[in-house]
Amino acid sequence: MNAVKRTRRQGLSESQFGYLMVFPALLCIGLIALYPVVQTFWLSLHRLRLQFPDMTKFVGLQNYITIFGDDRFINATINTVEFTIVSVALELVFGLCIAMLMNKEYKGRGLMRAAALVPWAIPTTVSAMMWKFIYNDQLGVLNDILVRLHIIPEYKAWLGSEVTAMGAAIVADVWKTTPFMALLLLAGLQVIPRELYEAATVDGASAWRQFITITLPLLRPTILVALIFRTLDAFRVFDLVYVLTGGGPGNSTETLSVYAYKTLFRNMDFGMGSALSVIIFVFIFIISLIYIRILSSGSSAE
């Protein structure tokens, strides 16, 4: 087949054309992303605090050793993992439900699609402030609703207690980013041929059975992409937590990115901050590998 292609009257072979098509993307990434990334790796091997430019020196893996012995780092890692697992899992479930609602044909579907996207269209910092107001212990509408419904006896400071602060942050994140998940999954649902469902219905398969045997397997590649990118984002969560709680109460919601941000830009400790960033990168890399292993094992067999 390759031979057939090459005999056609075009200047480029298949692989030459392939490289040509990939080139612009690689150029962008090489130009913009590669240098900062390499730079960050390099800085992470130095003691570099901007307040003391004269004391800069190469320290090898010292920053990493310090970080791994640091309680605060461990606390931030646990918080980040908790945040990521719970919010991504909820987003996947809700996102799939909403995507299926958006995929069904009925009047007003366009409105439903636009409505479902609203949360994602609001700038993150604004939506974080909005939730801060909703959770407010005095004028927050959440307290008002729950007290009116007699679910809680009196107003609570949702962001002020270790028990509820993380949950509050997760709810705000799920609200904001489920549309992202839903939209990706919707696009995946749309390329599943209708005939498969029609045939299954003729065979008498229940809706649930169709979901399990048709929708889920065919949606697997899309789910993989959606999960990877949501996890990347959730694991690096910054703005939302920073605005909602600033890492409090008592650092119980501080995530790795918040910690890295404080280290880099508040403490001006570029050595440690870079090392933290590299660690975040490595964690995400591992998570992605796991996803790809689990979810693409099936599709490569096809």
Binding site: N136, Q138, K156, A157, G160, T245, P249
Partner: peptide, 20 residues
């Protein structure tokens, strides 16, 4: 108030201004 652990300047000002 219990929620004072979430207050910044304007949160405190508002509670005070409402006469609470």
């Amino acid at each position: 108030p219990e929620g004072v652990t979430t207050y910044m300047e304007e949160d405190a000002r508002n509670v005070f201004q409402q006469g609470d």
